[in-house]
Design a protein around this nucleic acid. Structure first.
Lengths: 229, 229
DNA sequence: TGTGATATTTGACATACATCAAGGCACCTA
DNA sequence: TAGGTGCCTTGATGTATGTCAAATATCACA
């Protein structure tokens, strides 16, 4: 689906597009379109040549790898207003798979067209480079967590990430994706995820009702995440 | 130590500096210097503001994180002719520690000066962006290995990476850093490293003499790395 | 050339986490 | 409303890898 003026206003919110003039933004939009996705629908697969990058408008996208035996590792989740695959524009091939985990809508932008803009706009290059730097930083933190933290710590960290800024003692959060997916994101099995939650519950740190979780003792959780297993 | 014409010729080899004119390269060199490092000497620490990026001339540099209890995780190793910290120029702070693991020499380049060059040189931006894309790709592969592959697989992969291109049946390699460091790089304990090596030895895949390793059956190693544990 | 520091190996043991299996629950659709 | 499908939970059990400890081996430096 082609993009309307209303879509252009949505796209403009994204920091990557901030330095673009109205004319340039219109050009981006004219080479982009809106894609409706069913739950489970694949957007691109690892190894495919990379012609487009994406901005989530609605829903949730998982970025994942598959092992030879079909095991799935979710590398990241993209929520509305988040870009994905923008950092791999220069490698030619997508390094992982992307699929919608619920009915979703994404803006798809043409790489070639955007690269043409980059050629004439150094400010745009700088924003993309910052974004890539930031992404790299996140990856380093991810490897740090996977190697230096236990499963329990990673789960506690994940829960704490869902808490809005400034909340001190306790907080109520909702898991926006199936626990199965979060477990994969954290590099643990669903069974282990469930058991860790049960332990946190019996330790009095949390209360759970389906995907709604009351974090009763944020300090205890923070200690768990930072200090020990 | 300030840089000589001979140093400039060395620097020119690095693809990042390829699009620079002689004058620009001289400018980079005039804002750079050569740093001699003892074994174990720290180059920068995580969290420090980032004013320089580096090119290894001689020796070996480890890039690592420390956990609260002092455990070290080696994220990457930089050998001669390799850049490091060039991708974090935009974040302001180093995301990890860097130290020499043997007597080394590195070129240090001024970030501000290089960013000034980037502002006027679109081609240079593109090369840096490609380099960052490539780096990101490597990180994704790293997370893939850590979550989807066993310790044995990761070690087999590491050994195979040391084999020069085109070698088919068997190959003799040398470990360029202490096994302790490789173990950390692979996310396993030194004891586990030693035990996996012993198993590969008893399975007839390798022979070892200190840091020299004869890979007797590359196909078996490749199978081990790709298929099972 | 000795000597302490560091790296490596090996054994015994502990454990976090995975795997296998089964039952319960929620959601969807016919 | 029934019945299927997928998700979640819990139990029993297995295992790869970590931890602790001690015996070499190796290296750097005086």
């Amino acid at each position: 689906m082609a993009l309307t003026q209303q879509h252009i206003e949505q796209i403009r919110q994204c920091t990557l597009f901030a330095p673009l003039s109205d004319a340039e933004l219109k050009q981006v939009a004219s080479h982009g379109h809106l894609v409706e996705l069913n739950a489970g629908q694949i957007i691109f697969s690892q190894g495919e040549s990379c012609h487009q990058f994406y901005l989530v408008q609605r829903g949730m996208i998982k970025l994942y790898r598959l092992s030879v035996d079909g095991t799935e590792k979710v590398m990241d989740l993209a929520a509305p207003k988040q870009l994905f695959a923008e950092a791999v524009m220069f490698t030619g091939k997508y390094p992982l798979h992307a699929a919608a985990i619920e009915p979703s809508t994404v803006f798809a932008f043409d790489c070639m067209n955007f690269i043409a803009l980059l050629k004439n706009n150094n400010e745009l290059c700088f924003i993309l480079m910052s974004s890539m730097s930031h992404c790299l930083n996140g990856m380093i933190n991810e490897i740090d967590r996977l190697t230096l933290h236990s499963g329990t710590q990673r789960l506690a960290e994940y829960l704490l990430e869902q808490v809005p800024e400034g909340v001190m003692q306790s907080s109520c959060i909702r898991l926006l994706v199936p626990k199965l997916v979060i477990a994969s994101r954290l590099g643990i099995q669903p069974e282990t995820f469930s058991r860790i939650m049960a332990r946190l519950r019996s330790d009095g740190m949390i209360e759970t009702h389906n995907d709604t979780i009351l974090l009763k003792d944020l300090d205890a959780l923070r200690c768990l995440a930072a200090c020990h297993g």
